[in-house]
Amino acid sequence: MRHLLSTSDLTYTQAIRILDTAQEMARISEGPVKKLPTLRGRTIVNLFFEDSTRTRISFEAAAKRLSADVINFSAKGSSASKGESLKDTAQTLQAMGADAVILRHSASGAAQRLANSHWTSGSVINAGDGTHEHPTQALLDAFTIRQHLRVGTGDLRGLTIAIVGDILHSRVARSDVHLLSLLGAQVILVAPPTLLPIGTSTWPVQMSYDFDSVLPLVDAVMMLRVQQERMSDFFFPTAREYSHYYGLNADRLKKMKPTAIIMHPGPMNRGLEITAECADSARSVILEQVTNGVSVRMAVLYLLLAGAPNEDGEITK
């Protein structure tokens, strides 16, 4: 594995290996010395063409815990409007000797474009490309689900997971669909018809327009952020109507299995797709997702840059 561009590129074995490695990383992060020397002397660039403080910090923490040198490059705005192209930026970073580029970009496919170009020779990690994919988010989602519902090992067979909300524009949803179904979970997409992409009937998922009928079935519910600008594009009539049908609130919480967990990739619109009492309830694992993000990203950086674990699957210190 040289790049991480899409969860659809992962095999079952690779996915499990990343999760198992993340488990090791989590164990280390809980210890007194949180740092590994593995990537000492390696340079990792956080190339963020789009604002995302939490994802950038998570990657930065992951890289630093592996002792890599981290360069943060924030080029907000599109390449067209700023006059600096992805190509020029990548070539500049290449000239500075980047071993890996973590790319966040508003254009779908930007990471794949970078990986397939001759603009950089380093590994490319997709940290979110437009409305396409966000593979490390899906990995941390799978990791979190596995921690809670599968005692931290194996896959997700037998679990039913609902992804609720703006599937159409969600890179998290696309990555989650591939990965969670690869790991054996049954995914149900729940959204109004306007927010489901054309052709989801060919995806390895079930679909529903009716959140309430799905609630009793699920082991985990993943609430997606609803962007305010969707309202002006007629995806739904009003925020109130959206919340009424697709928001997670206390009444809906009661319809879920007692063991079912609440997830959200953040940042949340409290009161729109999720009420405060749900977000802050004991069933919510939203903050754990953030914590697990660091472990999963450590695992990804480790496996891409330091090679595979040894025969015993142990991490070399």
């Binding site: 409305t131 396409h132 992409p197 054309i198 052709g199 989801t200």
Partner: peptide, 15 residues
């Protein structure tokens, strides 16, 4: 960005 259909949905490119 491209034809709206199965491929655009997968690629996250506006149809």
């Amino acid at each position: 960005q491209m034809n709206e259909g199965l491929i655009s949905s997968k690629l996250g490119l506006k149809g």
